[in-house]
């Protein structure tokens, strides 16, 4: 799966799930398309209107810390973001992203500037900054997570097997 798009960079660590989608929004509805309009609103009220489908969301370390709300990766997906790239991820967000089919790439985000054109190949674990021509090393996902992602998320895994059947 090759992904191509522009980088939307939030040059800060500890972007929490309240910033990704505020509690006051997410408690109201299960309509993720509706919630997508409020993605990152407390950091950038106009963020949603700047996204072209396929773009990447880039953050610093400990991305997705805080609440366990799965609305966070779902809202990112529904806003048209193809993958999240960060220096590191908080563990609940990391699991939720894979479970819901949102690719996450852990790497040195200093090698990415705002608006840079990026290309990612998830199977090969390759991220290329096409603006600067730099190939960025990506930390590989654990094997179980690659399996869940390739199967289309954990719900799809359970539809297929009815329980956990992981190549651990």
């Amino acid at each position: 799966m090759e992904l191509r798009g522009k980088a939307h960079k939030f040059a800060m660590d500890n972007i929490n799930t309240d910033y990704i989608i505020a509690g006051k929004r997410k408690f109201k509805t299960l309509d993720m398309k509706e919630l997508a309009r409020y993605l990152m609103e407390d950091l950038d009220p106009d963020f949603y209107s700047k996204i072209t489908p396929g773009d990447f969301l880039v953050g610093g370390k400990n991305f997705g810390c805080g609440s366990s709300r799965e609305q966070a990766p779902l809202v990112i997906l529904n806003a048209g973001i193809s993958a999240v790239i960060a220096g590191s991820f908080a563990r609940i967000f990391y699991r939720n992203a894979i479970n819901t089919g949102l690719p996450v790439l852990e790497c040195d985000t200093d090698l990415i500037g705002p608006g840079d054109e990026l290309a990612a190949n998830l199977e090969e674990g390759v991220l290329e900054n096409r603006t600067t021509g730099v190939r960025i090393p990506v930390k590989p996902l654990p094997r179980v997570m690659i399996q869940i992602l390739q199967e289309g998320g954990l719900a799809a895994h359970f539809r297929k097997y009815g329980t956990f059947r992981l190549d651990a």
């Binding site: 799965e70 939720n96 956990f164």
Partner: peptide, 12 residues
């Protein structure tokens, strides 16, 4: 955990 893990836990 998130909601999908919760569902998997309830089911299995």
């Amino acid at each position: 955990v998130g909601s999908t893990d919760l569902a998997a836990g309830m089911l299995s």
